[in-house]
Design a protein around this nucleic acid. Structure first.
Lengths: 241, 241
DNA sequence: CGTCGCTTTGATCTAAATCAAGTTGAGTGG
DNA sequence: CCACTCAACTTGATTTAGATCAAAGCGACG
C-alpha cells in the first residue's frame, strides 16, 4: 500500500498533468486564496505544486515513513493518527479542506495519514519548501506558523484527553467541527463514530450515547447520523468544560 | 503574584546584575554549550540574556498572559499546564535543566508555567528573538526546531493520554525521566505524585499504586519516594505499550 | 429491494476514581 | 542533635464512568 502510493505519486510528479475529478458528498472547496498558506508560499517562492487523489480509507503516508511531501486538502477529509502495537489508535487531528498536513521538521512523519473519504490534495516536495525557507525568511516564518498552529491544537487536545469527561469531549468536538465545517448552520461529518472515538479517547458506543443524549435534550438535531445541526451552541459551550 | 513576578523581572532586565544563588537538591547544571539552543541563538544574533530565580511553586507566567520572554531552565524544574474552570489540571510538559520553554508563536502563553522546586532560568525578550529571526534564517530555523520538538512531544503524549493504560503511562513516564534526568542510573524526581498524575491523566493514588507494583516486581528501587533507580529497563519498555 | 456496514441501545463488567485511614520522612524549631 | 510536625505518600475499601459484550435498527448502495 505504502509503496504503491509513493510510486503513483512520483508518476504524477514526473508528468505534470493531474488526476482530480471526484467530488465527494461532504467535500467543500478550498477557502479564499488569501487564507491559503500554500498559495502564500508558492507565490512567494515559485514552488511546484501537484495534485493527487486518494480513495476512502487509502493510506497517504505511514508513521515513521520518510516525509517527502507536504499536503493540503483540496476536498475531502484526512485523519492523522498513531497506533499502539495491539491496534489501539489515537487520531491526533482531522484535516479538512484548506488544511495543510504532513509538514514535518524532521525527515519522517510522526503520524500516519489516511483519507477518511475520497480526497483530493495539493502537494509540494518538502525539500523544495526547506530550500525556499533557507533563503526566504517569510517562508521560514510561514513554516513555523503552521507547526505552531499544530502545537496549539495538540496542547488543547492533551487537556481534553487527560482531563475532560466523555460529554465534555463530545461537546468540544461538536463545537470544533461546527467552527471548521458548518455550512448554513449544518455540519456534514465525514468521519464515522469510531474515528470520533479514536480522536476523543473514547469508544464509538460512548460517542453515540453522548450524541443521543444531546439529541434528546434538544441541543442538536440529526438528518442522518452524520448530518448534525447545533440547536443550542451556548448550552454546548457550557458543557465543554 | 503575576504582577509582582513581572515587576521583579523587569528590574533585573534594567540593571543587568543577576540573582541566582540557590542550588536545589535535584538541580543539575546545564548540559554542554553545544547542546544549548540559547547559546546558539545568542551567539548568532548577539541577544541579551538575563537570569532569574523562582521559588518552589511560584508562577512564572499564567495561561493567556502576554508572552514577553522565552526561558531556559538553568537549574531546577518547571511544569507547564492548563486548567479547567473547576480546577482539573493537565500538565503538558516538565521542563528540566537545559530545556527552553515559554516560546510562543503568537502573542500569549498557551499554558501556564510554575517552578516545581526552586529554579533558576535564563531569559530573553521574545521580541528580540523575533527580530533576530526576521533577519537571520538560521535563527528562524532554530525557533521552528524548538516548536517542532514541542509538537513531537505533544503528539506522543496525546497517544498516551488517549489510549494507554495506567501502568503503560507510568512506564512511559519512568523511561522519559530516566532518559532526561538519570545520573549514575538513578533519578531524582523533582515533582510530587500529584504532578505526575496530572501529567499522565491519572490520580496521584493510581500513580502511587503503579509505582508500588513495579517496586514489588523488582522493576525499580526506591531510596525515598522520589529517588528511583530502574532495575529492569527492558521490562519497563515492554510495559510502555 | 436486499444486503452489509454503520449506528443505536441495552446489559454487564472493570480499570481507575474516589473516599478514607494510616505511615513516612524531610524540614523546623527547640 | 533530637523530636515534632505536616505535607507527601501508601494502602485499603468502595464507587463509578466508561468499556466491553451483545443485539437490534437504519439507511445508503448496488
Amino acid at each position: 500500500m505504502y509503496h504503491i502510493a509513493i510510486r503513483r505519486k512520483e508518476m504524477v510528479m514526473l508528468n505534470q498533468p493531474v488526476t482530480h475529478s471526484v467530488v465527494t458528498p461532504t467535500a467543500t472547496v478550498l477557502p479564499s486564496p488569501a487564507a491559503n498558506p500554500f498559495a502564500e508560499i508558492t507565490g512567494h517562492a515559485g514552488l511546484i505544486a501537484s495534485e493527487f487523489s486518494y480513495k476512502k480509507d487509502e493510506e497517504i503516508y505511514g508513521e515513521d515513513e520518510p516525509a517527502e511531501y507536504v499536503y493540503q486538502v483540496i476536498s475531502g477529509a484526512v485523519r492523522s493518527y498513531k497506533l499502539l502495537s495491539d491496534g489501539r489508535r489515537q487520531i491526533g487531528a482531522f484535516h479538512l479542506p484548506g488544511d495543510v498536513f504532513g509538514l514535518e521538521f524532521g525527515s519522517s512523519h510522526r503520524l500516519a495519514a489516511e483519507a477518511i473519504i475520497d480526497t483530493n490534495v495539493r502537494l509540494v516536495k518538502r525539500r523544495s519548501l526547506e530550500q525556499a525557507a533557507s533563503v526566504d525568511v517569510a517562508v521560514a516564518r510561514k513554516l513555523w506558523t503552521m507547526t505552531a498552529g499544530d502545537l496549539r491544537h495538540a496542547e488543547d487536545h492533551m487537556l481534553l484527553l487527560g482531563r475532560k469527561t466523555a460529554m465534555e469531549r463530545v461537546a468540544t468536538f461538536l463545537l470544533e467541527m461546527d467552527r471548521r465545517l458548518a455550512v448554513a448552520g449544518m455540519m456534514a461529518l465525514p468521519m464515522c463514530r469510531r474515528d470520533i472515538g479514536d480522536y476523543l479517547g473514547l469508544t464509538l458506543e460512548t460517542v453515540s450515547r453522548a450524541l443521543s443524549q444531546l439529541h434528546s435534550q434538544g441541543v442538536l438535531g440529526f438528518s442522518g447520523a452524520r448530518q448534525i445541526v447545533l440547536r443550542n451552541r451556548q448550552r454546548l459551550r457550557s458543557m465543554d468544560a
